[in-house]
């Protein structure tokens, strides 16, 4: 269930090994999961794996790679770019022989366009940055510091920014300012309202919701012509 995979080497460096959580029984339908990012990744991790367990029970393989620089990854987050993450997800899709993609929240920004699948409650780059910058401003005010969105955006564009403990490089920051999730042919958006409960990324503490995991897994199983167990 815990395995590794190798994203393509960049800038002549040796390829780093990345972690992969998988339910892999060599079945016909293999879903690549592009996880949520940063704070939302922590809050949605259990939900994500719970959906994968249900897909497994429905006869569907699923593969959840780490984004380079995130979760257990050993490479520095500050060096990661939006293009780099897109190619990493594309490489993962190929290496793991994925037939579909399930992108969660900002994961939709790097979902391989060549695979059919689902964008679950997709999040845009500007909204992601807005939320993280707001959190930083609120925390700074508590500490008696005055920071502004404009000031932080300018710093982020020029030299990158630490938001919520995540060091986002200038390259990734600039790309996120205009990054919107795009549905490729065969991909459809699954709104949070279709899951019958509030988004777990909103929770102040990580939580779970079996009903939401049931619904998302059933929706996926149904659309590939299998029935959820």
């Amino acid at each position: 269930m815990i395995a590794t995979w190798h994203p393509p080497a960049r800038n002549g460096t040796a390829p780093a090994e990345e972690l992969l959580v998988s339910f892999d029984r060599n079945r016909a339908v293999r879903v690549l999961v592009c996880p949520a990012w940063f704070d939302e990744a922590n809050k949605l991790r259990r939900f994500t794996v719970e959906v994968m367990r249900r897909l497994d029970a429905a006869g569907i393989d699923s593969l959840l790679p780490d984004l380079p620089g995130c979760n257990e990854s050993l490479v520095p987050l500050v060096n990661q770019t939006l293009d780099g993450w897109s190619s990493a997800m594309m490489a993962a899709a190929e290496a793991l022989r994925a037939t579909h993609v399930l992108a969660i929240r900002a994961g939709a920004l790097v979902a391989p366009s060549g695979l059919p699948g689902w964008h679950c409650a997709p999040q845009s780059g500007p909204k992601l940055l807005r939320g993280m910058i707001r959190a930083r401003i609120i925390a700074a005010r508590e500490a008696g510091l005055a920071e502004t969105s404009e000031g932080l955006m300018a710093t982020g564009r020029n030299s990158g920014l630490v938001l919520g403990g995540w060091h986002i490089g200038a390259d990734l920051f600039r790309a996120l300012e205009s990054a919107e999730p795009v549905l490729a042919p065969g991909q459809s958006a699954v709104d949070q309202s279709a899951l019958g409960g509030p988004g777990l990324w909103l929770r102040a503490e990580p939580d779970e919701d079996a009903g939401q995991a049931d619904r998302l897994a059933a929706l996926i199983a149904e659309s590939v012509g299998m029935s959820a167990a």
Partner: peptide, 16 residues
Amino acid sequence: HLPELDSMAVAGLLTE
């Protein structure tokens, strides 16, 4: 007043 309502959670609340 609520320890779980930190700056990140408040930012999420305002965005929502």
